[in-house]
Design a protein around this nucleic acid. Structure first.
Lengths: 374, 374
DNA sequence: CTCAAATAATTCAACCAATAAACAAATCCG
DNA sequence: CGGATTTGTTTATTGGTTGAATTATTTGAG
């Protein structure tokens, strides 16, 4: 008999959930909250929060800040903060003309950053991944010197990626069916790390999500490089789709009988708002983008659109044209406006998002990170 | 300080979750499972399942079937099934040319069904809702005679609805800012029921979800009436969007400089695949639908599309044209096919989905239904 | 300078829910 | 009739949260 849906909850799941809740409360807090403040904020009792915080400190995820600010009568509170020397994430990116790696600690600070510029299309996938492996090993060595322990690695690729890390196709790299996850796992320095591979726009969207921390926003991140990709964040969660291939906005039709696209169709957005086309005619790029984005808003009722990649520098140039189409074509435009803004992270968005994805995994399930917590 | 995200989990939440798990396991099971079978399926122990099942029987949600089928050695199993006289859902629908109400019990069986044909555009919203209230009261009376207790009501409306039940605009009814939820709550026979209001396509999608019970499918339901709406189901959950206005596929642009639409834009899908346009040119309707659906698939990586409403009868006529566009315009068409199928529920889909939404609420949180379970 | 008030954090008994293992019930088969 | 087998229940145990009491550390008043 098939397990219908969901899985049983045992007491340990309760603990795991509440550990994550406490950790996230600290992470999303503007100041350094005390145990009592966390209790008030979460609804847990002070006793429970104390026990959970002890475990998180023991596990190296939280630190207690000794100097307590005076705030009135009573015993001063001991502030809590994410441990800067706790688990860190290794973010990797491979793109047309560069390789990059970075180490981001639990607090979100970028501790190391390495970029190697070179045209990857001239290399075989194996050679490119080997080179990336060397960069990753270098980043890990630097992290180790800093006393950081890596919790995992994530790689951003401009292409279609399956959940188990197989790159089915990355047109601009010229890749097809490359098992990037396996290649990276074979690098000795990474052999003991869980390695995830994901689409570049998806991870960049996660990077923007962290920058916009706190709430649980719904937004679309659009990345305009040679191709155009999008990451869809719904209620604070990245939506990947059934096979992990969501966000292919570059091949949404904007002019049904328009320019032929290398995908075989006609009138794909990419042919009007890709890097080359945008340079040739920015107004047309904006109009085409507006048409495609209006479709997204009509379908998903998204109220925030973030333009990243190559769109961020030219944002002011594109904005009026996009907004005109949105006003015209979004059914609910008068009832509720759509916010358009440039990405806050620059070219590093995908790499940062990759590293963030790793530490997000730790934050969402701290019990799994430290054996001592379970 | 703001509660960051999520809420604490206490022991009672564990029980609530596992109660729902057991109930859903019975609901999604093809046969009448025994306690032992549920234990094997869910991973809970037989002792725990026994205790939970006792509570669910006590609360009137499950019944034990005495006649046990012989299946080999050992003590015969006592089959369990959803209680047909447990809580039921009242589904309501208001559309251009009819009002409808139905009562669906916990097992999903339609126990009562009332339809009143009349052009609602000739009535004021107040008069139409009053008439619907009478129909609802009649349905409730019939349910009471059957010994059914209503758990709530849900109303399907062809328009934009806010989460608190305000109909912002329903173009084909000529409605604007009508508080449908409040109007129904004022009906004496419904005063003690929770009343939800939702978009017609959303609820119809939920109806299809139940018909396709068991898994946690991702699909798009498209309803082609005078206007065109869509319900988006992701991983077994209806996606409503930030304001509840998702699925407005009728106003996705298919021909940017095409026919003017009453929304003010040009080239909306509705102008090419709405009821009138489809009657005039089915091939054009199919092509336009294919273009818009390809956009959805590219964006959301959805692998199943269900055509309902007016599209269901003409499905075979439309299919080739739609599939041709999908093959051409979906980037991942070669990697993974998109399934196109007609809706299994007919014109009743939205009303059925509304009733299903109510009993879904009970199934998802049985502890809240019966005070005895807490 | 001492003591009361206030606030933070910990300790401890009680409780709730799931678990594991033993036990009882009901049937089949030799 | 008796062992094998499977279902369902009982009982002691464990893990985790709760609530109340307790300890810790500060401010402020007399």
């Amino acid at each position: 008999m098939m397990n219908a849906s969901g899985s049983p909850v045992r007491q340990s799941s309760v603990r795991a959930h509440n550990l994550a809740l406490v950790l996230q409360t600290v992470a999303n807090s503007a100041d350094q909250p005390s145990r009592a403040a966390i209790a008030a904020s979460t609804g847990l009792t002070r006793a429970t929060v104390s026990a959970l915080v002890d475990d998180l400190i023991e596990g190296g995820l939280l630190v207690e800040l000794e100097p307590a600010p005076r705030t009135g009568a009573g015993r001063p509170a001991a502030g809590l903060a994410l441990a800067p020397d706790g688990p860190a994430g290794l973010g990797l990116e491979i793109n047309v003309d560069y390789l990059a790696a970075c180490v981001v600690d639990l607090t979100g600070a970028v501790r190391h950053r390495l970029v190697a510029r070179a045209d990857q299309r001239l290399l075989s996938p194996e050679a490119a991944l080997a080179e990336l492996g060397r960069l990753a090993a270098q980043a890990r060595a630097a992290a180790t010197i800093d006393g950081l322990t890596l919790a995992g690695a994530a790689l951003a690729v401009p292409g279609l990626v399956t959940p188990d890390g197989l790159v089915r196709v990355a047109p601009n790299l010229g890749w097809q069916d490359v098992d990037a996850a396996q290649a990276l796992r074979k690098v000795p320095a990474l052999a003991d790390l869980p390695v995830a591979v994901d689409n570049e726009a998806n991870l960049a969207a996660l990077g923007e999500l962290r920058a916009d921390h706190g709430g649980e926003p719904t937004f679309l991140y659009v990345s305009g490089e040679v191709g155009i990709g999008a990451g869809i964040v719904l209620d604070g969660e990245l939506y990947r789709g059934g096979r992990g291939w969501s966000g292919e906005i570059g091949h949404v039709t904007v002019f049904p009988d328009g320019r032929p696209c290398r995908c075989g169709a006609n009138g794909c957005l990419e042919q009007y708002a890709g890097q080359e086309a945008m340079a040739a005619d920015a107004d047309l790029a904006a109009a085409a983008l507006g048409i495609a984005l209006a479709a997204v808003v009509n379908l998903l009722d998204i109220d925030q659109i973030v333009l990243g990649g190559g769109y961020a520098p030219g944002f002011d140039r594109l904005r009026p044209g996009i907004e005109a189409e949105l006003r015209r074509r979004v059914l609910t435009a008068e009832l509720a406006p759509v916010t358009l803004r440039p990405a806050t992270l620059g070219a590093d968005a995908a790499m940062r998002g990759a590293a963030d994805a790793v530490i997000r995994g730790v934050r969402d399930n701290p019990a799994a990170w430290s054996g001592r917590l379970g």
